[in-house]
Computed example of a mutant assay.
Amino acid sequence: MNGEAVLEKVRRYRAIASLYRQTAAFRPPQRNSLLGQAEEWEHLAVSELEAYFAARHNPVYELFPQLDRPAYRTMAVAA
């Protein structure tokens, strides 16, 4: 997966998290649940970035840069 695609996913995840936080401000009864959802989306964004950079700094990725992350993980386990 290329860097632009990863950044687009991260933008989307963080936008969704922002919407949950905004909604929480206007719905006090559901506030805790909504903020929990926002936290999950933020965690997904961070995980996406971490996985991308971990893959970019791995020698297997340098040999096969066309691989997406799931295929990369399969090769890393097999190696």
Results as ranks from 00 to 15, higher is better:
Q30R: 09
L63W: 08
V46W: 06
Q30A: 06
R12T: 04
F26I: 11
E50H: 10
Y52V: 05
E8Q: 15
Q22K: 12
P65A: 04
V10I: 13
E8I: 15
L7Y: 14
A78P: 02
A38N: 03
F64V: 06
A25F: 00
R69K: 09
W41L: 15
V60N: 01
A25L: 05
P59G: 08
E48N: 12
A24I: 00
V46T: 14
S33G: 11
G36L: 05
E40G: 04
M75F: 08
A38K: 02
Q22C: 02
V10L: 11
F53I: 11
S33N: 07
A15I: 01
R11M: 08
T74K: 07
I16M: 00
V10E: 09
E8N: 14
L19I: 02
Y20K: 10
V46S: 06
A24F: 01
R11Q: 14
G3C: 07
A55D: 06
Q66T: 04
K9I: 05
E42W: 02
L35S: 09
G36V: 03
H43Y: 06
M75T: 03
A55G: 07
R31Q: 07
L63S: 14
Q66R: 13
H57S: 11
L19M: 08
Y20W: 04
S47N: 12
P28Y: 10
R56D: 12
A17K: 00
G36W: 08
G36H: 12
L34D: 00
L35T: 03
Y20Q: 11
L35G: 02
F64L: 10
F64C: 04
P59I: 10
R11H: 04
T23D: 03
M75E: 02
Y20D: 02
F53D: 09
K9A: 10
A51H: 09
N2E: 14
E62G: 13
F64M: 08
T23R: 04
A5L: 12
A51N: 07
A54Q: 10
I16A: 00
A5I: 09
L19F: 05
A24Q: 00
R56A: 14
A15W: 05
A5T: 11
E4S: 14
P70V: 09
L67W: 02
L34Q: 00
Y61D: 10
T74A: 12
A54H: 08
A17M: 02
E4A: 13
N2A: 13
N58F: 03
R14V: 09
L63A: 13
L44Q: 07
A17R: 00
F26C: 08
P28S: 05
F53Y: 15
H57W: 09
A15N: 05
A45G: 14
F26S: 14
R14G: 01
A78T: 13
L19A: 08
R14S: 05
A38I: 07
P28C: 03
L7V: 03
A5N: 12
Y72E: 04
M1E: 06
L49A: 06
R73N: 10
Y13S: 01
F26A: 15
A76G: 01
Y72D: 02
A45F: 03
P70W: 11
P65H: 02
L7C: 05
P29I: 03
Q30D: 15
E48W: 00
A55E: 13
H43W: 10
L44T: 08
D68A: 09
